[in-house]
């Protein structure tokens, strides 16, 4: 990546808070979340389930259902434009062309009622304004590119006639064929076997243009290691640490990041106990005062129960929100 590209963020999110009105009261699913993505950068958003990763990601293209959801932010700037003040029409333009989503479930992106070819062609007609014949050609080429054999025939297939891995490839083709500026991939391979997962990530790597950015959401630390240059670690609705891939993996500063890395079962040649994190992720109805990680943290102090730690710098482009770092910096 050139320095030029490094200088202007494609996406910048400042103090995003997402809340839901539920029968049991108001829950805060994302709490003062701030981050940015540079042009061409692949950023991983990691954390265990329920920590607010999907909610954070869905806020960018404003896909949080409202009601019950409420988005508030100081800014969500996409390519210099303020997402929060866009009209629905402008937003649809952004969602169709500039921002593509890849989900865990292909069924959320593929209609069961229409043939693959028709679905792909329609997206191209709408957003690329290609003549119909050409759109069909382009769609078919993309099917071939994502490794679907017999692509001319597969254009006439319905999604249910294809395996999960194949549907996932088609969703990737649809996400990439419009040359988006930003890809948001939310657990894109969680439902797939490792062998298929590896194929899918190879595909994304090969097909994605160099200046396209990607926000990859996953609970799988191995996957972010392979795919991302920078990592955001989320715990119980908050980002707790951000840094380069190497900083996070080799020099984690937040006790949650460190605990998570140790708890991952790695391929090993001999059986043995794992280093777990005691306790469990609290429910959003029961987030404590102070640091959200305190109940599970081996280092928790009085201060941690009283107030929330701010972010401390712990290296170039590396920050963590933990009081242990107050003395260091």
């Amino acid at each position: 990546m050139t320095e030029q590209k490094k200088q202007n963020p494609l996406l910048s999110v400042r103090n995003l808070t997402v809340q839901f009105e539920t029968d049991d009261g108001l829950v805060t699913a994302a709490d003062q979340v701030s981050f940015h993505l540079m042009k061409g950068e692949n950023v991983g958003l990691v954390g265990e389930s329920g920590c607010g990763k999907s909610v954070t990601a869905l806020s960018i293209p404003r896909l949080i259902p409202s009601p019950p959801g409420r988005i508030a932010a100081d800014e969500i700037l996409f390519d210099g434009q303020d997402i929060l003040s866009m009209t629905s029409k402008e937003m649809r333009q952004i969602r169709g062309r500039a921002v593509s989503m890849i989900f865990q479930e292909p069924s959320s992106a593929l209609s069961p009622l229409h043939r693959i070819g028709r679905q792909m062609t329609e997206a191209l007609l709408l957003h690329r304004k290609l003549p119909e014949k050409e759109a069909w050609q382009v769609a078919q080429q993309w099917l071939a590119k994502v490794g679907i054999a017999d692509s001319p025939e597969r254009m006439y297939a319905y999604p249910f006639q294809l395996s999960g891995g194949m549907q996932q490839r088609i969703m990737i083709a649809m996400a990439l064929m419009l040359s988006p500026r930003l890809i948001i991939a939310d657990e894109p391979t969680t439902a797939l076997d490792v062998t298929t997962q590896a194929q899918v990530f190879d595909l994304i790597r090969d097909m994605k243009q160099d200046d396209t950015s990607m926000l990859l959401i996953t609970h799988d630390m191995g996957v972010v290691w392979e795919m991302c240059e920078r990592i955001l670690v989320m715990y119980a609705s908050q980002i707790v640490e951000t840094g380069s891939r190497d900083a996070i993996f080799k020099n984690p500063k937040h006790p949650y990041t460190a605990g998570l890395l140790k708890a991952i079962p790695k391929l090993t040649t001999s059986r043995g106990k794992l280093k777990d994190i005691p306790g469990q992720v609290p429910s959003p109805f029961h987030y404590p005062e102070g640091c959200h990680f305190q109940a599970r943290c081996p280092f928790a102090m009085k201060q941690c129960r009283e107030s929330q730690p701010r972010f401390y710098e712990c290296g170039p482009d590396h920050q963590a929100a933990c009081f242990l770092l107050a003395s260091e910096s």
């Binding site: 490792v194 191995g222 240059e229």
Partner: peptide, 12 residues
């Protein structure tokens, strides 16, 4: 070989 191994530089 399909298992992504953090810390192993065969990836990315």
């Amino acid at each position: 070989s399909a298992v992504p191994v953090p810390g192993n530089n065969t990836g990315n």
